[in-house]
């Protein structure tokens, strides 16, 4: 079983693509670091008692005044950069992944149904998608933030920042999934195996999810990867602009925003370290997405 997996064409292509291997290693390293942050990081950036202002603005170790306790330096609060980044990546990935999953479920369901039924339902769903595309993510986020503030008690707003952010990002990403799923469904529904299922009188939901969905998974997997990167970037953007997470529970975007203030005062690491980390994460996920697309799309082979 394991040998068959190792020997399959996809894994073979992977073993012979240095870019994919490097990208996968970087992504796994970052994912692992984020997942196990509480055990790896030496301090908890959310715990105000674990760091002190005396250690503030220390440069990375290789610079003058560097402190071996903080290999990549500290920010103005005295937080260890590595710990802050690991915890930040944890939040970023949590939001990115859940946004991606919500967008997939929403987009694929609507796209499948639109492609399967066609006609008026299809037209309505796709026009909604068009409208959604015309709204920038930041506007959607502000809208949802506003609605949440309007209907929820002020005390719970801060705790719901993550949820609001996730929903806003998911709403701006589902269109991709819906369009791809719809286009693929259009092709598949005219194939004879789908007609065979329809002739038998199977339930439309079963035809859609048991018969058609597995056959259109290829392109969807690629979009999932690429959109995971987009979701992480969107979260960073929103946090950077101040709509996202607050400074006391920083995500990568928040860290970059804080770092901006020190860009011109010589404390470059506070900006550059999380930025490079974010770039490495997004680029490696994108490379993996490209690799998946090349492998799963026979027309590009």
């Amino acid at each position: 079983m394991l040998w068959r997996l190792w020997d399959s064409d996809g894994v073979y292509a992977f073993r012979h693509s240095p870019a994919a291997i490097i990208a996968a290693s970087v992504a796994i390293l970052i994912l692992g670091g984020a997942l196990f942050a509480p055990w790896i990081a030496q301090s908890n950036p959310y715990d105000l008692s674990s760091f002190s202002l005396i250690d503030g603005l220390l440069p990375p170790v290789w610079q003058e005044f560097g402190d071996p306790r903080f290999p990549l330096g500290t920010d103005d609060q005295g937080r260890d950069m590595i710990s802050a980044i690991l915890y930040g990546a944890r939040l970023s990935l949590l939001i990115g992944l859940s946004a991606m999953v919500i967008a997939t479920v929403l987009g694929v369901s609507l796209g499948l149904a639109a492609g399967y039924y066609g006609g008026r339902f299809d037209a309505i769903v796709m026009r909604i998608a068009d409208v959604q595309l015309a709204l920038p993510a930041i506007l959607t986020a502000l809208l949802i933030d506003g609605i949440a503030r309007g209907i929820l008690p002020p005390s719970s707003i801060e705790n719901l920042r993550v949820v609001v952010l996730t929903i806003a990002i998911a709403l701006s990403l589902w269109v991709n999934f819906a369009r791809t799923a719809r286009a693929s469904t259009f092709v598949e529904r005219n194939k004879e195996y789908v007609q065979a299922a329809m002739i038998m009188g199977q339930h439309p939901l079963r035809v859609m999810f048991i018969h058609i969905l597995p056959n259109i998974m290829g392109p969807l997997l690629v979009i999932m990867t690429v959109d995971l990167a987009s979701a992480i970037l969107l979260e960073a953007t929103l946090s950077f602009l101040g709509i996202g997470l607050p400074a006391d529970s920083p995500s990568l975007g928040t860290l970059i925003r804080i770092g901006m203030q020190f860009l011109l005062s010589g404390e470059w690491w506070i900006l550059w370290v999380p930025t490079l980390f974010l770039v490495a994460l997004v680029v490696s996920i994108n490379i993996l997405g490209d690799f998946l697309r090349d492998t799963f799309n026979p027309r590009l082979r």
């Binding site: 194939k191 004879e192 195996y193 007609q195 065979a196 299922a197 002739i199 038998m200 009188g201 018969h211 597995p214 056959n215």
Partner: peptide, 20 residues
């Protein structure tokens, strides 16, 4: 009739679900 009438299609390459 959904059961009584069955159909055999032209193209055996697309009439069976490749993922099942």
């Amino acid at each position: 009739a959904r059961r009584l009438i069955q159909m055999v299609f032209q193209d055996p390459y697309s009439s069976l679900n490749a993922r099942h």
